[in-house]
């Protein structure tokens, strides 16, 4: 949780790769506090089994983004406490 908050001024995320999907740190233990910062743990078998169901926690992720005219990394868990709508779409410069 190093770069939590401070989203006022977008910074260039070119040098810092985003983590992608962030799994709960305690996969085996019951305690699910916080998220892991291990940047390269992104392809264990657990992740493949990940899926989204209503009534269950949304998988956390970090992605590079274009925001307010600049580039920044955006993490879903930064928006805890707010209602969030995530909208996937096939591609920029398409028609629908």
């Amino acid at each position: 949780m190093d770069n939590a908050k401070a989203k006022d001024k977008p910074k260039d995320g070119c040098v810092k790769p985003a983590k992608g999907i962030i799994k709960p740190s305690a996969v085996t233990a019951a305690a699910d506090t916080g998220v892991t910062d291990a940047a390269t743990s992104s392809s264990s078998p657990q992740e493949d089994a990940m899926s989204v169901k209503v009534g269950y926690p949304a998988p956390d992720f970090e992605a590079t983004a274009y925001v307010n005219g600049g580039f920044d990394n955006i993490k879903l868990s930064d928006y805890k406490g707010q209602w969030v709508m995530i909208c996937f779409y096939p591609g920029d410069f398409t028609f629908v």
């Binding site: 209503v54 209602w83 969030v84 995530i86 096939p90």
Partner: peptide, 25 residues
């Protein structure tokens, strides 16, 4: 992870998720 990636087309299809302040879908 959200079940909206089309492997054949290589794109994310139109998925929309509403997530509450506790992070629940």
């Amino acid at each position: 992870a959200y079940g909206v990636y089309d492997e054949a087309a290589g794109v994310d299809i139109r998925g929309r998720f509403i997530i509450d302040p506790e992070g629940i879908v």
